[in-house]
Design a protein around this nucleic acid. Structure first.
Lengths: 118, 118
DNA sequence: CACATATATGAACACATATTCATACAACGA
DNA sequence: TCGTTGTATGAATATGTGTTCATATATGTG
């Protein structure tokens, strides 16, 4: 951190320091970023929406979101790694469902933001 | 939408249809995805955190997040386009601050998710 | 066991994104 | 007006990400 002229023009150095010190850990920050990244794709959002409505097998999801089965599987894996969905196997069929109670509240908040700002 | 064997094994066709029909518009979905994408980067999260604590000029932010000034400006532009920050000019200095009341609640929700799941 | 079906996976490719570098611009002081 | 400072911007580059294709795996059926 260099010492350019502008620094702290309007902030007391102690306040600046406490703001800097209270930054969440870089671990927390990268987890947060990873988490939001998952929501940053339309197809994943669609999958999450559908799963928020009903448990669905891969083939159903594939038809609903109009993607290839392989692409859906890849995205489901990502969602699973981020613990947003869980699966249940029945024979060769795999059923997915939401594994997070916050998904919908996060959706709602974002929608509020969009409605207010556009 | 094809008609593979698995379709609707556990869902009444009418329900399937209503779920499909209630999918938010593709416009809404891409706005949502764009919005979340903004949060999907650690440096932007840091910038948002700092701005949530205090109005800051570009040079201050540059020092705090330890990036190059140019990179900070690029990110601030993106944040501005997504109406998450606003600016105020004073001479040659540009002060940025949060322009969205939901940023912090969205942070909080995501943090709750992370705490519960890891 | 041979075959079909549902899903998962790895590699390759195309595209998006973040950063850097060089430079432009705008406001101010001498 | 010239130089300086704070910020913005465009092009280039490197890295990341999503999809596709081909194929593997696993389970069930005849």
């Amino acid at each position: 951190m260099n010492d350019k002229a502008c620094l702290c023009k309007n902030i007391a150095p102690e306040e600046m320091l406490s703001i800097k010190n209270e930054l969440p850990s870089s671990d927390t920050i990268s987890h947060l970023a990873e988490f939001f990244k998952v929501f940053g794709d339309g197809n994943r959002l669609k999958i999450l929406y559908y799963l928020s409505r009903h448990e669905l097998c891969v083939a159903d999801l594939t038809a609903l979101v109009d993607m290839q089965q392989s692409a859906v599987s890849h995205q489901l894996k990502l969602l699973r790694l981020n613990r947003l969905v869980k699966l249940r196997k029945e024979g060769t069929t795999v059923y997915y469902s939401l594994d997070d109670s916050h998904v919908e509240s996060i959706f709602d908040l974002a929608l509020v933001h969009l409605r207010e700002q556009r």
